[in-house]
Design a protein around this nucleic acid. Structure first.
Length: 291
DNA sequence: AATAGCCCCTGACCGC
DNA sequence: TGCGGTCAGGGGCTAT
């Protein structure tokens, strides 16, 4: 599924079922997702209480009473279902409907809350890993991640520094998780549109010679925070709508201004939204508005 | 070191 | 209906 807003929505949806509850039983229905699951994966989870459920970039991090951390990534198609006494929910449903195919239910947590938390992932680009909390700084998946775009540390000056001297495109730079963590293809397109910046522009143009932020960097920083904030809000509200009508699309897609809107009118200038391929991935933009 | 491209995998959709 | 090609929210690895 996910970029930052979807992962955050999933986190909030899982919290009531997991946080503060013991994992009575963990079951892995196959020995690998994207990577092989550790041999002791289920054993290290069973009997542990989830003391907190956090997020870093597009990763979910469940703190366990044992001192381990359960790291979870949804890849492209991963989703969770929470099956409780009062029915079934899917936190973080988004642009594409989640898989209904039970053959892709790969991992199940039976919580002491009575809820079953099921991880489903048809493409298996997602993965899970358990490691000691003490290794959080050296964990390869987390090491080198850039700042959280909604965190206090992230500002135009940080973004400018990270992009200074970069010869690659602004689009590619923003997708690089070392520059800023949590953006994906959708929100990069949307943020660039809101900032009126071309995806083809060199990343280095966010900084001047002293590596100080240009106006572009200021605009882009604001656009990133704004679009992520709005998307998280929409994720929250689409959750409620969604309990009734399973199988429909999410909510924030209606707020897309350029993503997935090739050939449709630009909401700002009335021109036409264009699509082209950049580093192997679709970029959607309005050439008239974005310079 | 920085950058671009390939690849992992399944399913949906489109044109023939 | 069936078949092949294309595309999809990510990111690790490898070759320049």
């Amino acid at each position: 599924m996910p970029e930052l807003p979807e992962v955050e929505t999933v986190r909030r949806g899982l919290q009531p079922a997991m946080e503060g509850f013991r994992i009575d039983r963990a079951v892995a229905h196959r020995e690998n997702l994207r990577f092989p699951l550790q041999k002791d994966f289920a054993a290290r989870l069973t009997g542990q209480t989830v003391t907190g459920l956090g997020r870093r970039a597009k990763y979910l991090l469940a703190d366990l009473s044992s001192g381990d951390v359960l790291l979870m990534h949804l890849g492209m198609s991963g989703s969770f279902r929470v099956i409780g006494a009062d029915g079934e929910t899917t936190p973080g449903e988004f642009h594409y409907p989640r898989s209904e195919d039970r053959t892709h239910d790969h991992v199940v947590f039976e919580m002491a809350s009575g809820a079953r938390v099921v991880f489903n992932d048809p493409r298996r680009f997602g993965f899970m890993k358990v490691f000691p909390r003490s290794e959080i700084e050296t964990e390869p998946h987390l090491k080198g991640l850039g700042p959280e775009p909604l965190g206090n540390a992230f500002d135009a000056s940080l973004l400018a520094k990270a992009c200074a001297g970069k010869q690659t495109s602004l689009k590619a730079a923003l997708l690089d998780q070392r520059v800023v963590a949590g953006l994906g293809n959708i929100y990069v397109c949307e943020a660039l549109f809101r900032a009126h910046l071309s995806p083809k522009r060199k990343a280095s143009t966010l900084a001047n010679r002293k590596e100080e932020p240009t106006d572009h960097a200021v605009r882009l920083t604001e656009a990133i925070r704004e679009v992520l904030g709005e998307a998280i809000k929409a994720g929250g509200s689409s959750l409620r709508d969604h309990r009734q009508t399973s199988g429909e699309l999410g909510y924030f897609q209606h707020a897309f201004k350029v993503y997935d809107r090739e050939g449709k009118p630009c909401p700002t200038c009335g021109g036409t939204v264009q699509r082209f391929v950049q580093n192997g991935r679709s970029t959607f933009w309005c050439p008239k508005c974005q310079k």
